[in-house]
Design a binder for these strands. Structure first.
Length: 744
DNA sequence: TTGGTCCATCTTTTT
DNA sequence: GATGGACCAA
């Protein structure tokens, strides 16, 4: 059988396993996606399963698309183009998109209609704020973000407002807000991310007919990244597979990094308990990394208690030691990363071989700046950045309102953007009038031109009424356009009518950037030619950060450790390995969270194929201010023989636990891509060549404060100083990095 | 109602 | 060092 060519016995077993529940525990790089796609092809080609009777679920669109392409390829459809609509393809989708589709189809059984919009994280917080306001609750005491997190957690555990447990006053408040929150969503004909899962799970649980229909249809249900499912997802999968019981799940408890989102890797254990006849298959051989990298990964993850010992082995050879680098500060760290990449590119690596990973999004900034300083291109993974932009949200809100005028969050967002004389007062009156008429504010607004002015005048000023009427005329125009035109045409009509460019592009660079973002959104809309506005809206509501990764450009990738899951790169840098960053300080108190931080590091390490660099700064910037920090405690767990200590900045720095000192060496010079390619390195532009701080000078350091220079010399085009600081003692610093000032 | 300024808060991770 | 809210003058 061609499908099994080149597979190891465990992989073959996993692909050709019989019927019934199957649990595949797949370590990193063990060919998990390959097994899943081959399993699907095997069922279709050899077991006579019809595509219609199969469902495959992933967490990101990117994973779904990749699975689709690989299955299409195996089935001989070629690997080009969009196969999601091909007649012989099974349904492959993310949890959220599969649920959205199901809910639209079954809307008659639900308290909203099939045109519902999907509220994103910002929208959700706005709704919570509105609910808090209506309930007269102190928003200082009950932060909208926090209350929303509680509601979200409740939904992930399938708790409804009625069943929300109350043990203290705050619970009581959350329960009330939760109830009002759901009402507000329904008046907006909206659901949030969590609702997609929650409503689906509840519908399948409570409506026997619907459940039976889907359960009979899906002879085979396959799930990727099962360790990241939450309770809602677990339950809805269970219902979908309840008739045929052919549920095939693939996961790795060591890569569970979404507990904060309600994921529970114990679902893997629960699976074995709920399906006592489940076959369990272990994939242990790693095809990705060198043994050195796997040993470092094992050293980290082995410290987690309650962990079943698992081996990771490879036949890829020993490989090179992992490089550990301590930089003077986070800026120097970023410089080191970029210059090392440039050097390796000069040595023959492709720029696209590299990934730079970090714990928090904020850390990307300095890395980006370092790339920009060296005039080197990079790509940053993060859809949030784009869709979170004000101008992008504005335009999307217009489109959402056109599609679903009940959407009050979008209405509030755009009604006065650009300003058209309809302020908070007028909107409050409008909401009251709408509530009296039992209509959503937007629906009431649409009906407003037909109403008797005299009734309205008691609540609204003539000016407001006329402004609203004018807005309604536009809205109606866009709505009729949306019925026949492409999403991009609707967008154009809106942008022109409201003169949006004049509004956001003030001629400054930032204004130009804002307009560029709008045009980028338009470019995405153009791809939806021939498809409908709701399809466009649904897709942009459910994009994940990973979905924005473009494979084509040959440049380094910058991404969070979370976004790195499922990916692999020849060379990986994990940056910012400082205690408080990784592990994050918010996890210090909670042993479970600390275990998850460790898994996060493990995920990062196991992305690397050939080479791994671990870097940490001695100071980091928080809130814009620099503060000293210690190396990550996780670094202590890596045996010395696996590590090569690279150049460090010229300071005496000790690794925790090792007691060793770093030697002081030159820093590499700054190249550009072209010069990196040619192997020529121009001299560093801003390195001082003469002594600026002679012995005896009094200096001020931004972190360590006042000190006196004991010794000063030029080394490799930089001034190296030994300084005695009043507060922290003797330090060795590089003048180009230390931001020293003469004390006056 | 608008638009300016000033202040607090924020930073974990995201479908 | 960004962003959103509160506050205030016109």
């Amino acid at each position: 059988m061609d499908l099994l060519n080149g597979m190891n016995p465990q992989q073959k077993q996993a692909v050709t396993a019989g019927l019934g529940p199957i649990l595949v525990i797949a370590g990193p790089g063990s060919g998990k996606t390959r097994v899943l796609t081959h399993r699907i092809s095997y069922l279709l080609s050899y077991m006579g399963v019809r595509p219609y009777n199969m469902l495959a679920v992933t967490f990101t669109n990117k994973a779904a698309k990749e699975m689709e392409n690989r299955v299409a390829n195996l089935l001989g459809y070629g690997d080009e183009g969009d196969h999601s609509r091909a007649p012989n393809m099974p349904q492959v989708g993310t949890f959220h998109s599969v649920c959205a589709r199901l809910l639209r189809r079954e809307a008659e059984h639900l308290p909203f209609n099939a045109n519902f919009v999907i509220f994103d994280a910002d929208d959700q917080v706005s709704v919570v704020k509105q609910a808090l306001g209506e309930l007269n609750l102190d928003e200082k005491r009950f932060r909208a973000q926090g209350v929303h997190a509680s509601i979200s957690n409740a939904k992930n555990e399938l708790l409804l407002p009625e069943t929300y447990p109350v043990q203290n006053y705050r619970d009581d408040v959350v329960k009330k807000v939760y109830k009002r929150y759901q009402e507000l969503l329904l008046t907006s004909n909206a659901v949030d991310f969590d609702d997609l899962l929650l409503w689906t799970a509840v519908l399948l649980e409570q409506n026997t007919a619907v459940r039976e229909r889907y359960a009979r249809r899906f002879e085979h249900v396959l799930v990727d990244e099962f360790q990241d499912t939450n309770q809602a997802q677990y339950v809805l999968l269970k219902h979908l597979a309840s008739f045929h019981r052919n549920i095939y799940v693939v996961g790795d408890p060591d890569q569970s990094i979404y507990a904060w989102r309600g994921a529970d890797y114990r679902n893997l254990l629960r699976f074995e308990e709920d399906y006592t006849d489940a076959q369990v298959i272990l994939l242990e051989q790693n095809y990705r990394s060198t043994q050195m990298i796997l040993d470092v990964a094992t050293a980290i993850i082995d410290r987690n208690p309650h962990r079943k010992a698992r081996r990771l082995f490879t036949d890829r050879g020993t490989g090179r030691k992992v490089v550990l680098y301590q930089a003077y500060d986070d800026r120097a760290e970023a410089t080191y990363v970029v210059e090392t990449i440039a050097k390796l590119v000069a040595g023959g690596n492709q720029p696209g071989d590299f990934a730079v990973m970090y714990r928090t999004n904020a850390q990307s900034r300095l890395i980006e700046e370092a790339f920009l300083r060296h005039n080197l291109p990079y790509k940053l993974v993060g859809a949030q950045r784009f869709y979170g932009r004000r101008e992008v949200k504005d335009v999307i809100a217009y489109l959402r309102l056109v599609h679903n005028p009940s959407d009050e969050i979008s209405l509030n967002r755009v009604i006065n953007v650009p300003t058209r004389g309809i302020g908070d007062k007028s909107m409050a009156s409008l909401r009251q009038l709408a509530a009296k008429a039992h209509l959503a504010a937007g629906d009431f607004l649409l009906a407003l031109p037909a109403m008797d002015d005299s009734q309205l005048q008691s609540a609204l000023t003539a000016r407001a009424i006329s402004a609203m009427k004018k807005f309604v005329l536009e809205l109606r125009k866009w709505r009729s356009l949306a019925e026949k035109a492409n999403p991009a045409d609707v967008m154009d009509s809106i942008l022109e009518a409201v003169e949006y460019r004049t509004f956001i592009d003030d001629g400054t660079d930032e204004g130009q950037d804002r307009w560029d973002n709008v045009m980028e959104l338009r470019r995405l809309a153009i791809e939806y030619e021939g498809r409908t506005l709701p399809e466009f809206l649904e897709e942009i509501a459910l994009v994940s950060d990973q979905d924005t990764i473009q494979g084509s450009s040959n440049v380094p990738t910058l991404l969070t450790l979370h976004a790195a899951k499922g990916l692999e790169f020849p060379v990986v840098f994990i940056t910012g390995l400082a205690d408080g960053t990784l592990p994050h300080m918010r996890s210090f108190e909670d042993p479970d969270s600390m275990e998850e931080e460790r898994r996060l590091m493990y995920v990062g390490i196991t992305r690397a194929m050939d080479r791994l660099y671990l870097t940490c700064p001695q100071t980091r910037s928080t809130y814009g201010y620099a503060e000293p920090c210690d190396p990550s405690r996780f670094l202590e767990n890596i045996p010395n023989q696996l590590i090569d200590v690279s150049y460090s900045s010229p300071q005496n720095v000790s690794r925790p636990g090792s007691g060793g000192a770093f030697s002081s060496t030159a820093r590499p010079a700054a190249p550009t891509w072209q010069s990196a390619r040619n192997g020529t390195a121009p001299a560093q532009a801003n390195a001082p060549k003469s002594i600026q701080f002679p012995a005896g000078s009094k200096v001020v350091h931004p972190v360590w404060g006042d000190g006196m220079v004991l010794n000063s010399r030029i080394m490799d085009d930089d001034e190296t100083l030994d300084i005695f600081f009043e507060n922290v003692g003797l330090k060795r610093v590089a003048a180009s990095l230390a931001h020293l000032k003469h004390k006056t």
